[in-house]
C-alpha cells in the first residue's frame, strides 16, 4: 500500500517539504548550498581585498584579524581568493550540469521511448563514454581542448552525460509499462501528450536527485582538473589551483592548503546532503507514516 502511494499530487509536494524539514542533515545541506550561492553571487562585495593583488610585504602570514585566513606566498589574501573561488566553482558547475542534463535527459527519454535500434545506438555510445574510468575522459578532453571555461563545461558535461541518459531512460522504461500509460493510449492520447503529461511528471523525482548530486560531482571534477593545472590559467582564484600551489610551502603555511580545501569540501558536502535529503523525500516509504 505504502509503495503504491508514490510521491503524488499537490498534497504530495506539501508532504515532501514536511519530510525535508524534519531531516536535520538535509537542512544543513540547504544551509551550505545557500551559503555557497550567496557567496558566489556577492563575491565582489563580500571579499575584503582584491583576490589577485600581490603584496610581497605581507607574504605567508598566518591567519590574523587583517587576513582571517592568512596570506599566500605572494601576499594575496586567502579569504578573498576563497570567496572569489566560490564564484568560479558556481559558474563552472551550473554550466556543466545544465549542459549535461539538457543533452543527456532528452537522449535518455528518446532511447527509452523509441526502444529498438535507436535505443541500441544511444546506449552503446553511452556505454563507450562510461568505459572511460572516472575522471579520465574529462582529463583527456581538457588535455586536447586546452583549459578555460568552455572546455571545462564540455569536458565535465560529456563525462556526466551517460549518467543522465541512463537515469532518464530507466525512468522512461519503467513508466512505459505502467497501466496508466496503456490506459492513456486506450483513451486516444497522442505520443506527445503521453510523454509530456503521463510519463514526464513521474520522472521528475529521480532526475531532481541526480541533478543535485551532479552539482557535487561537477565541482569535484572541476577542482580536480584545476588541481592538475588543466583548468584556468593563474592568477584566477580557483580552489583546486590554489591548493595545488599551496602544496609546495605546506610545511610553512598549512593555512593556504587548509582553507580553500575546506571551502571546497563543505560545498560538495552541502550538495550531497541536499541530494540525500531529497532522495528520502521522494522515497515512497516515507508517505504512509
Amino acid at each position: 500500500m505504502a509503495a503504491r502511494r508514490a510521491a503524488t499530487g499537490a498534497s504530495g509536494w506539501a508532504r515532501a517539504f514536511g519530510v525535508l524539514a524534519r531531516n536535520r542533515l538535509a537542512l544543513v545541506g540547504v544551509g551550505l548550498v545557500s551559503l555557497f550561492v550567496f557567496t558566489a553571487g556577492l563575491a565582489p562585495w563580500l571579499s575584503p581585498y582584491e583576490p589577485d593583488r600581490i603584496t610581497i610585504t605581507v607574504a605567508m602570514q598566518p591567519p590574523s584579524l587583517d587576513h582571517w585566513m592568512g596570506t599566500d606566498h605572494l601576499g594575496r589574501d586567502i579569504l578573498s581568493r576563497v570567496i572569489h573561488g566560490a564564484r568560479i566553482a558556481f559558474v563552472v558547475s551550473v554550466g556543466a550540469v545544465l549542459l549535461g542534463a539538457t543533452i543527456g535527459i532528452p537522449l535518455g527519454f528518446l532511447s527509452g521511448y523509441a526502444r529498438g535500434w535507436v535505443d541500441h545506438a544511444v546506449m552503446r555510445l553511452m556505454d563507450a563514454l562510461l568505459a572511460f574510468p572516472g575522471r579520465l575522459l574529462a582529463i583527456a578532453l581538457v588535455a586536447a581542448m586546452g583549459g578555460g571555461l568552455l572546455s571545462l563545461w564540455i569536458a565535465i558535461s560529456v563525462s556526466s552525460l551517460p549518467k543522465y541518459a541512463r537515469i532518464a531512460r530507466a525512468a522512461m522504461l519503467e513508466q512505459r509499462e505502467r497501466d496508466y500509460v496503456y490506459a492513456g493510449q486506450v483513451v486516444g492520447e497522442s505520443h506527445t501528450v503521453l510523454v509530456s503529461r503521463y510519463i514526464f511528471p513521474n520522472t521528475v523525482a529521480p532526475l531532481t536527485v541526480a541533478l543535485t548530486i551532479d552539482f557535487a560531482s561537477a565541482i569535484l571534477i572541476a577542482s580536480s582538473l584545476s588541481f592538475l593545472g588543466l583548468g584556468f590559467p593563474p592568477p584566477t582564484p580557483d580552489w583546486g589551483a590554489d591548493l595545488s600551489s599551496a602544496m609546495d610551502g605546506m610545511e610553512f603555511m598549512p593555512w593556504a592548503a587548509i582553507f580553500p580545501g575546506m571551502a571546497l569540501s563543505l560545498t560538495i558536502l552541502g550538495f550531497n546532503l541536499l541530494g540525500d535529503g531529497m532522495r528520502d523525500v521522494f522515497d515512497p516509504r516515507h508517505y504512509d507514516q
Binding site: A216, L220, S224, F227, G240, S265, I268
Partner: peptide, 22 residues
C-alpha cells in the same frame, strides 16, 4: 561516508601528508 564522498582526494591527500609525513 558522506564526508568521504565530499572531501576531494587531493585535499585529503594534502592533509594526510601534512599530518603523517611532515
Amino acid at each position: 561516508a558522506v564526508l568521504g564522498l565530499s572531501i576531494p582526494n587531493f585535499w585529503l591527500g594534502l592533509i594526510l601528508i601534512l599530518v603523517f609525513s611532515l
